[in-house]
């Protein structure tokens, strides 16, 4: 039995996960939920890369997934530091409390 990679289904799944994360970013106002939704979106992008790499049995998809993961790690460390600063200053996690700029 020759197994073919379920490419269409996989890309549909990646799309669905990405849109779920995007809806989370738009709908939620808690900054930790927004960060988690961004993680979901990055993960969906990595899933699309790995599916495309598996379709042609090449390692490039996994290499791009590793880069995406390194980027996600850097992003989430800075993002969580921003969460702490928001909480220290405003005593809330609501991003709307920090919507104004004073320049």
């Amino acid at each position: 039995m020759i197994f073919s990679v379920p490419m269409e289904e996989g890309l549909v799944l990646a799309w669905v996960l990405f849109v779920t994360g995007l809806v989370g970013v738009i709908v939620r106002r808690d900054i930790i939920f927004i960060l988690m939704s961004i993680e979901i979106m990055l993960n969906a992008a990595g899933l699309a890369f790995v599916i495309a790499g598996a379709r042609w049995a090449q390692p490039d998809g996994q290499v791009m997934f590793i880069f995406i993961m390194a980027m996600a790690a850097a992003e989430v460390s800075v993002g969580l530091a921003l969460v702490l600063q928001l909480y220290y200053r405003r005593k809330t996690l609501d991003v709307d409390s920090a919507s104004g700029m004073k320049g």
Binding site: A70, A73, A74, E75, S77, V78, L80, A81, L82, L84, Q85
Partner: peptide, 12 residues
């Protein structure tokens, strides 16, 4: 990653 480390240390 180094930039992320420095940024997280400064902001956090």
């Amino acid at each position: 990653l180094l930039a992320g480390l420095a940024g997280a240390y400064h902001l956090g």
